[in-house]
C-alpha cells in the first residue's frame, strides 16, 4: 500500500508543485493550507508523514508540530519541517519540538523526495 504524505503550506503555488512531485515519487498526498486543517486531516486521514511549513498565519508549523507530538497515538508519524528561515537555530528548534527532519526553502525537489523516502524507510 502506498504511504500517505500530508503537505501543509499556506502558499498554493508551492502546494501545487510539492503535491505533484510527491505523487510522482509514488506516494499518496493530501494538502492543507493552515495549521488547523493540518491537524484535522491528520486525525481523519492518518498520514505516515507530514511535510510542514513553519510560516503560516493563525497556527504556525512549530505549534502544529508540538501538538502532533503531544498526541501519543501518533507515535509513528514522521514530520519534516519546511522553513523559509535559513538558519540552523530554526532547524534546531524544529528538532527540539519533535520534528524528524527539516528542509530549507528554496530546496531542490530531489532533496525533498529523498528525505521523505528516507523517513519512510523507502529509500
Amino acid at each position: 500500500m502506498d504511504k500517505k504524505v500530508l503537505i501543509v503550506d499556506d502558499e498554493p503555488n508551492i502546494l501545487l508543485s510539492l503535491a505533484f512531485l510527491v505523487q510522482k515519487a509514488g506516494f499518496r498526498t493530501k494538502t492543507a493550507e493552515d495549521g488547523q486543517a493540518a491537524l484535522d486531516t491528520v486525525a481523519q486521514w492518518q498520514p505516515d508523514l507530514v511535510l510542514l511549513d513553519v510560516n503560516m498565519p493563525v497556527m504556525d508549523g512549530f505549534e502544529v508540530c508540538q501538538r502532533l507530538r503531544e498526541d501519543n497515538s501518533l507515535g509513528d508519524l514522521k514530520i519534516i519541517i519546511l522553513t523559509a528561515k535559513g538558519r540552523n537555530i530554526e532547524k534546531e528548534k524544529g528538532l527540539a519540538l519533535g520534528a524528524d527532519d527539516y528542509v530549507t526553502k528554496p530546496f531542490s525537489n530531489a532533496d525533498v523526495v529523498e528525505r521523505i523516502k528516507h523517513q519512510l524507510g523507502a529509500a
Binding site: S17, L18, K105, F107, N109
Partner: peptide, 14 residues
C-alpha cells in the same frame, strides 16, 4: 525572498 524562490524552483524543476 525564500518562499517565492521555493515555489519558482519547485515548479521549474517539475
Amino acid at each position: 525572498l525564500r518562499s517565492p524562490l521555493a515555489s519558482l524552483r519547485a515548479a521549474a524543476e517539475n
